[in-house]
Amino acid sequence: MWVYEKKLQYPVRVSTCNPMLAKFLIEQYGGADGELSAALRYLNQRYTIPDKVIGLLTDIGTEEFAHLEMIATMVFKLTKDATPEQMKAAGLGAHYANHDNALYYENAGGVPWTATYIQAKGDPIADLYEDIAAEEKARATYQWIINMSDDTDLNDSLRFLREREIIHSQRFREAVEILKDEQGKKRIF
């Protein structure tokens, strides 16, 4: 069960009307290494992972939904008042034809989200290594979006999200350390 708090994890402020940026940001919404993929990947893998790290996957998977909500807010703010002409000029003409100004789970190229972006191999090490890779890829995606964006307010929120990817990667790495820890090893406290 989840408890919903009706506020964003970190404030999202958008200072310029720039639908083009929304087209790039949608990569983190419905892309292979986006927040939706991350949330669904972790919350699904947690059923077949050793007890010690289930809670970690639950926590991080839940936080990814909070990130998804932030990205949605950014994309919405950047496009909500965009005219069809502006959408066309931003390369979102095809999106407008199909969705008006609605959000959709697709990547920056307009490819709809697919479950093939995520894996559940059932092998704890394989799954956690996938999760670490996903966090590093999401971190890189945030960097490339920051490089293309000149919206300082938006970049501030993106920097926060990138920092969280670093922390998540760290925690997944620690989960691997817990799982590979030798069982029955003599412990000295």
Partner: peptide, 14 residues
Amino acid sequence: AGTLWKPFYDPYFS
């Protein structure tokens, strides 16, 4: 900052 721990803080600027 997005983290409690100073050693993990690594802000990225374009």
